Simulated scan of single mutants.
Amino acid sequence: MDITTVCIHGNRKNLDYTGAISVPIYQSATFAHPAVGESTGYDYSRLQNPTREHLENIITDLEQGKGTVAFSTGMAAISALMELFSIGDHLIISDDLYGGTHRLFSLISKKNGIEFDVVNTSKDTDLTKYIRKTTKAIFIETPSNPTMQVTDIKAVAEITKKHNLLLIVDNTFLSPYLQNPILLGADIVVHSGTKFLSGHNDTLAGFLVASTEDILEKLRVISKTTGASLSPFDSWLLIRGIKTLSIRMEKQQENAKIIADWLCRQPKVKKVYYIGLPEHPGYEISKNQSRGFGSMISFEVENEETAKQLLEKVNLILYAESLGGVETLITYPMLQTHSDVPKEERESKGINECFLRLSVGIESADDLIKDLEQALS
């Protein structure tokens, strides 16, 4: 079945006998048992809920995994993921990660005894030199947030398979519509469902997609024990959002290419980070492992004054955190998404006072360019 059809019809399991087209919202905390020792398959909504299960099955089909666990936020999903590891375990991680992930690893995971090597996985292809006896996984985000680094998933998977490590890939920026890390060798795929999967900036969600039953069962035990399950109503919002994932991603990507090309011609813009530009160092890898380039653009302007002017003068474009929705958003990573990353570390990656991130929506590209033009003038 084509992925565009999966987005709309997804899991065909019948949850309703009235003929309703929309999946029911089972807004129930608990479920009655038909008899002692018997179950309908649903006992308590922290463990499983029919609406959430329907959503999880859709995500599993989209990512072509073995199963999915849905969480209340993307960070709840990554927090649960880290419960797979114990004191003394070691992970190799990309050096450019979402600021919340960086904060979790730095403040919580390290406190809990987990050790990290931070590596530019888009450039350093010899990851074997970082592997220790205690190494358990490699965690990459590709394209990365916010500098759009692209890591070769297949190449990293060859290393993890050889050394019996888990490969974890945050696939938020491209969504399963444009990239499927499990098909490239990943063991676990991470999503902030808040972003492209939801697509409307109206709910929070997170997902972990497992490639095997063994990993899936471990994640389900962690989920029901730690308790950050996605609610039935939020599950329904995600089901609704995913129905338009394909047409949203196509339009957003189309707009992003037009805007990236325009930004490249602006005298006040020093550098454009968009993986769909042929000059991007990850362009060829992206062509090989993805079905498109997505709609995330970062760019550096001439000075801090210009950056602040742009943020304060945009009208159609909204100055806000988050990404992936139908509305175009502009973000100032140094003050927002990456404010907790130490300044020296942040600036070494180019995330400075002149660096901006644009999540391109589905508006008219001409209108978006006019807004950027007047804000830069």
Rank of each mutant, 00 (worst) to 15 (best):
M82W: 01
F196Q: 14
G67P: 11
H191W: 03
E83A: 09
S86M: 07
T121R: 07
I114W: 14
M148K: 09
H54M: 11
S79N: 07
H102Y: 15
D95I: 11
D124C: 04
M82K: 09
V189N: 10
G113N: 12
P143E: 00
K66T: 07
G74H: 02
K111I: 02
N180D: 02
F116E: 02
S122F: 04
V169I: 05
S192V: 00
P143Y: 01
I59G: 12
S109L: 14
I131P: 02
S106R: 15
Q64I: 06
A137R: 09
D117H: 14
T60R: 15
R132S: 12
T142F: 06
I108R: 15
I138E: 07
T142P: 12
A157F: 09
M75P: 06
L174D: 05
I188P: 15
I93W: 06
L174V: 02
P176Q: 00
P143N: 00
F173T: 11
A77G: 05
F173W: 04
D89K: 09
I140Q: 06
F196Y: 13
F105Y: 07
L165W: 05
E56Q: 11
S122N: 03
S109T: 01
T121P: 10
I108M: 11
Q64N: 11
F116H: 03
I92C: 11
D126L: 07
H191Q: 05
G100A: 13
D61G: 03
K123I: 02
M75R: 06
V156S: 13
K195Y: 04
K123T: 00
N112S: 08
E63H: 08
K136F: 05
P146R: 00
T172K: 15
I87C: 07
D126N: 13
D96I: 01
P146H: 04
D124H: 11
S94G: 15
D152Q: 12
K154A: 09
L97S: 09
T147L: 12
